[in-house]
Design a binder for these strands. Structure first.
Lengths: 331, 331
DNA sequence: ATAGTAAATGAAAGCGTTTTCATAGCTAAG
DNA sequence: CTTAGCTATGAAAACGCTTTCATTTACTAT
């Protein structure tokens, strides 16, 4: 690896001049600039990141923490972040939280130690207070999937209450009156908000909110499967189910099929997230779409803007959208 | 941020001693070690990565290039890599190739400039020669999804020919004789190998390889959809289809449904990859499973071993496995 | 007792940049 | 013709660490 000194010797200038050419900080005479550039390409010189970082205190890395990269939900977000970050010549350092609170903490600490220039976090088991304290640190911090008033400018999130409302309202409009809800864990804000939206839609329509039509479970396929089982065993009449995410909907669909119930003929079904499987299920799933990639892009844009002390007009609150497919019928 | 100097002052020792305590390089008297450690935690000191890297020439980062993080296929691999890398106290720097050859090049160059200690690559549009030349560089390089004889020790790959063989053989065993194949692009080795396995199985069973039952297309849903359309239009009799990946199988399934053909009653269907959707499709898809996470782990293990000049016994060639679900029936 | 050796520690060089400050060479104003 | 004010460049400090080499101290062996 060649150094800036070798370049300067070959070009017959001082290392300061080489640095200036490379960083475009100060005007340099055209011919010296040309000599330097030619020396650079002759030697195949690339600046040493460490030396540069030591002086500038910038690593060029943006740290990202999500629960689990391999989930379609998170990888959609990461993909959006990546596009923006890489376009700006920086790079992505990824770490997973794996749902566990301690691991989330570790992941963040880890990235901070690695001197990431900014952090983009989607955390579930970490308190608002903790996030607040992290945000005081040197590295600009952007939070995805949560709204914290004190950090409003640093939050990118989806209106989950609205999503729940849209899903339920759609079912109401199709004539359904006995609508069950398979909710996510109430410990998670996403789960609570979607439930709240469900309830608001029912109230607005003057439909009673029957407790027996409500089950909460985990955001995975088996969670939906079990929850549907519970609903059927209760025997409460229902014509539609709104599941708080697509994987739960898929599980519920399986249970219904096991009971020889047809979707949407016997029971209509709505999911949430619009991940890939929603399109592939049979019947394809009516669900609530979240602009994951867009949200990732927005988060990255905010992070970069803060890093460079620039102002940006970026959307913070994203709206979910109902995607109508084949799993709902009107009655 | 506190520095090693402040720690040394607080502990009443020299900075060399602090460094020695922190890196465990040389024995240090028990009481001095204790004094140093207490100073470290009092100040909340963390070593500056840049300064350390400048001396050691190690960044602690492992670079990963895949086509597209948001695809379930790649994120499975990345997830495996991450587990191993993070357990070793290093971190992951991720960059996407996005199928395009130039971008793949860029991504690798980018990571090399970032002084990643090792690289793990899953590339599609890059030649073996290029990979070979990259492997000569300072950073150990591991290649996923390809076998290059000169780099045998650095390759982690799946026996795709065997996978194609298993899928086809299964259909043959169920009594099928007219088996179509929706292949991937023949420019991609994966596509060619799976096709080869398909042909070998047919030959072994003494079944003619009818050209009219062969279509190639792109590894996406619409590719499968179109390819199935072509097969049906040709009108060649067939009772089963082997698609070269699950997404194509899903597309084919859609086409069949549009033509009121039932799977598996009228046509049996086998996919490849066993990504999440395979389980969720209706009927759930018989497919060929690849141990993605395991392969990622293996790749990371090799990279770390090379980095530390250690020997490891790691599996390089992984075997695919047939997963029987509901999309095949015997005739 | 004394030389010799091992163990623990300190001093200082060096890693490759960026950046501040100084200087040399000009141009324009008085 | 002198001097102030630019502009382009160079010299050198600083960033925070690891590591080599030197030094001190404490022991062991003669």
């Amino acid at each position: 690896m060649s150094t800036i000194r070798e370049v300067s010797r070959l070009a017959g200038v001082s290392i300061s001049t080489v640095s200036r050419v490379l960083n475009n900080t100060v005007p340099v005479a055209e011919d010296t600039r040309a000599r330097v550039m030619s020396a650079v390409s002759q030697l195949g010189y690339t600046p040493n990141t460490f030396a540069r970082g030591l002086v500038t205190n910038r690593s060029g890395g943006i740290g990202v923490v999500v629960n689990e990269i391999s989930s379609p939900f998170y990888s959609g977000i990461v993909s959006g972040i990546e596009q923006v970050v890489e376009a700006s010549g920086m790079h992505l350092v990824v770490s997973s939280g794996h749902v566990d609170g301690n691991l989330e903490q570790n992941a963040v600490t880890f990235l901070k130690e690695r001197r990431c220039d900014a952090l983009i976090l989607h955390l579930e088991s970490t308190s608002d207070e903790q996030l607040l304290s992290w945000s005081q640190g040197d590295a600009p911090t952007v939070i995805i999937g949560r709204y914290i008033p004190e950090l409003a400018e640093a939050c990118v999130y989806l209106d989950n209450e609205l999503g729940g409302y849209l899903a339920t309202k759609h079912l109401l409009e199709q004539g359904h009156r006995h609508i069950a809800h398979i909710g996510g864990p109430l410990t998670m804000k996403d789960g609570r908000d979607r439930l709240a939206g469900y309830q608001r839609a029912l109230h607005e329509a003057g439909v009673d909110c029957d407790e027996r039509l409500l089950v909460t479970s985990n955001f995975v396929e088996s969670g939906g499967h079990d929850a549907m089982q519970v609903l059927l065993e209760r025997g409460t009449p229902m014509t539609a189910v709104f599941a708080a995410n697509d994987q739960m909907a898929a599980g519920a669909l399986k249970t219904l099929r096991e009971h020889n119930l047809d979707v949407p003929k016997d029971i209509s079904l709505v999911g949430y997230d619009d991940v890939l499987i929603a399109r592939y299920l049979y019947p394809s799933l009516t669900t609530v779409h979240q602009p994951l990639t867009e949200m990732g892009k927005a988060a990255a844009t905010i992070a970069l803007a803060r890093l460079n002390n620039k102002e940006t007009e970026v959307q913070h609150k994203f709206n979910p959208q109902l995607v109508k497919r084949e799993s709902v019928r009107s009655i």
